[in-house]
Simulated scan of single mutants.
Amino acid sequence: MFLSISFDPERDDPTVLNRYKDSFHSDGETWRMARIPDPAELISLLEKFGVIVIPDGTGNFTHNSAFYLVDRNGKLAQVFD
């Protein structure tokens, strides 16, 4: 399964994520969209996986582009640039 996590849970509510999912023709099973509403939990997750997110001042974000392979135990197995 492929999981995209929003960096902006306040703006990316479930309705917005559903539109995003539909625009990419995701079936919701093999590619899911998610948000972590608790800022501390989101920051913790980003730090654990080494994701760097920088607000660009216009409501968007710049971030490192990579795919993170997580094993069944929730541990980072590999990063693909």
Results as ranks from 00 to 15, higher is better:
2 F>V: 14
2 F>T: 10
2 F>D: 12
2 F>N: 11
3 L>A: 11
5 I>E: 03
6 S>Y: 09
6 S>D: 10
6 S>H: 08
7 F>V: 05
7 F>T: 03
8 D>F: 04
8 D>E: 03
9 P>S: 08
10 E>C: 00
12 D>W: 03
13 D>V: 09
15 T>W: 12
15 T>S: 13
15 T>K: 13
15 T>H: 13
19 R>K: 14
19 R>L: 13
20 Y>E: 05
20 Y>L: 15
21 K>V: 01
21 K>W: 00
21 K>F: 00
22 D>R: 13
23 S>I: 04
23 S>E: 10
24 F>Q: 12
24 F>M: 11
25 H>Q: 14
25 H>V: 04
26 S>I: 01
26 S>C: 14
26 S>F: 14
26 S>V: 06
26 S>W: 10
27 D>G: 11
27 D>F: 05
28 G>F: 07
28 G>A: 07
28 G>W: 03
29 E>Y: 04
29 E>R: 12
29 E>H: 11
30 T>R: 15
30 T>W: 08
31 W>E: 05
33 M>Q: 08
33 M>I: 00
33 M>W: 03
34 A>M: 12
35 R>F: 02
35 R>A: 02
36 I>S: 01
37 P>A: 06
37 P>L: 09
37 P>H: 05
38 D>W: 03
38 D>L: 02
39 P>V: 01
40 A>N: 13
40 A>E: 12
40 A>P: 01
41 E>M: 07
42 L>M: 08
42 L>H: 02
43 I>E: 15
43 I>R: 11
44 S>K: 03
44 S>D: 14
44 S>L: 01
45 L>R: 02
46 L>E: 09
46 L>C: 05
46 L>V: 00
46 L>D: 06
46 L>H: 05
49 F>I: 10
51 V>D: 01
52 I>S: 15
53 V>A: 14
53 V>Q: 07
54 I>G: 00
54 I>M: 11
55 P>S: 06
55 P>C: 09
55 P>N: 04
56 D>Q: 06
57 G>F: 05
58 T>V: 03
58 T>R: 12
58 T>E: 14
59 G>A: 06
60 N>I: 00
60 N>Y: 13
60 N>S: 12
61 F>Y: 15
61 F>M: 01
61 F>K: 01
62 T>A: 04
62 T>G: 14
62 T>D: 10
64 N>L: 07
64 N>R: 10
64 N>I: 08
64 N>E: 11
65 S>G: 06
65 S>E: 04
66 A>S: 10
67 F>H: 04
69 L>H: 08
70 V>C: 08
72 R>S: 13
72 R>Y: 09
73 N>W: 05
74 G>R: 07
75 K>Q: 15
75 K>M: 15
75 K>R: 15
76 L>Q: 12
76 L>E: 13
77 A>C: 00
78 Q>P: 00
78 Q>W: 12
79 V>P: 07
80 F>Y: 15
80 F>A: 05
80 F>C: 10
